[in-house]
Simulated scan of single mutants.
Amino acid sequence: MSSSPELDETLRQAILARPDAILEDPDVMQALVAANERAMGSNIVDLRAIAMERLETRLGRLEDTHRSVIAAAYDNLAGTNQIHRAILRLLEPGDFESFLRNLRENVADILCVDAVTLVLESRPDPERDEGRLADVLMLADPGTCAGYIAGGRGGTPRQVTLRAPAGSDALPDGAIHGQTTQRIRSEACLILDLGKDHLPGMLVLGASDAELFSPDQGTDLLGFFTGVFERVLRRWLA
């Protein structure tokens, strides 16, 4: 007579009825493999079990990678839809004032930002209003946009710069983000090419979320948004 404890008949019948349930449960299978190794003794090496363990580790890594790729794809799709919705909003206004108001309200909401500032460089003019117009438009001297992005370091700025907000000798404190300056933790600076007859411009998006705009993020979608935005703006500046 065997000295091994008998399996409960109810449990035995459940296993015989659904053996696939055990095969599909990794915890149960690991427990069975461990029990088998103990039964064989410490002087026997089960190479099959070792191979299975390594395969399980590789499978776990592949599943983690798969989940990461799927999550990144969903994030990218959501970001693409967000940019497309913002672009459609840009195309709606019928006059420049409505364009600025739409930019400050609807486009800002779609992009989940707390501040939007459009900086247009222009030639020095004693009669020019140096303040912000419509809470979103700011006129500035030539070189202001590059100076703000470079922060005194010089060089040609990229089309899209993502970073924590930085001060600049070219602009007084609070000039870019206005009353929301203290809340801004990250920003996207988009350099605008407005054509050969115009000085460059800059669209600055400010967010209270420090992780919304980070230097390690991709800029393809914002680059596309910048290209559309500058073409729409050229129409109003023509």
Rank of each mutant, 00 (worst) to 15 (best):
S2P: 15
S2C: 03
T10H: 07
L11A: 14
L11W: 01
R12V: 01
I15L: 06
I15S: 03
R18S: 09
A21M: 06
I22Q: 04
L23E: 10
L23W: 00
D25H: 11
V28D: 02
A31T: 09
L32K: 04
A34S: 14
A34N: 08
A34Y: 10
E37A: 09
A39D: 07
S42D: 12
I44T: 06
R48L: 09
A49M: 09
A51W: 08
R54Y: 10
L55C: 10
T57K: 15
G60Q: 12
G60L: 15
D64V: 08
I70W: 05
A72G: 03
A72C: 00
A73L: 11
N76L: 12
A78D: 12
T80A: 14
I83N: 02
H84L: 15
H84F: 02
L90N: 13
D95C: 12
D95I: 14
D95T: 15
F96Q: 11
E97A: 14
S98D: 14
R101N: 14
L103R: 04
L103W: 01
R104K: 14
R104G: 02
E105H: 11
V107E: 03
C112F: 10
V113L: 04
D114S: 14
T117H: 08
L120N: 06
S122Q: 09
S122E: 15
R123W: 13
P124H: 12
E127V: 08
E127P: 10
R128V: 04
R128A: 13
E130I: 06
L133T: 09
A134G: 02
V136I: 11
V136A: 09
M138T: 11
L139W: 01
A140K: 03
P142Y: 00
P142I: 13
T144L: 05
T144A: 04
T144Q: 09
C145L: 06
A146I: 07
G151C: 06
G154D: 08
G155R: 04
P157R: 03
R158H: 13
Q159C: 13
Q159V: 11
T161Y: 01
L162G: 02
L162Q: 04
A164T: 13
P165S: 03
A166W: 03
A166F: 04
S168N: 00
D169A: 12
D169R: 14
L171G: 08
L171Q: 07
D173H: 08
D173F: 07
D173A: 13
A175K: 07
G178N: 01
T181D: 13
Q182E: 06
R185G: 12
E187D: 10
A188F: 02
I191C: 15
L194D: 01
L194Y: 01
D197T: 11
D197C: 09
D197L: 03
L199S: 05
G201W: 00
V204T: 04
A207Q: 04
A207R: 03
S214P: 15
P215H: 06
D216C: 07
Q217G: 06
T219G: 05
D220I: 11
D220A: 15
L221R: 08
L221C: 01
L221T: 03
F224Y: 13
T226S: 02
T226P: 09
V228C: 05
F229D: 00
L233E: 02
W236T: 01
W236E: 05
A238L: 11
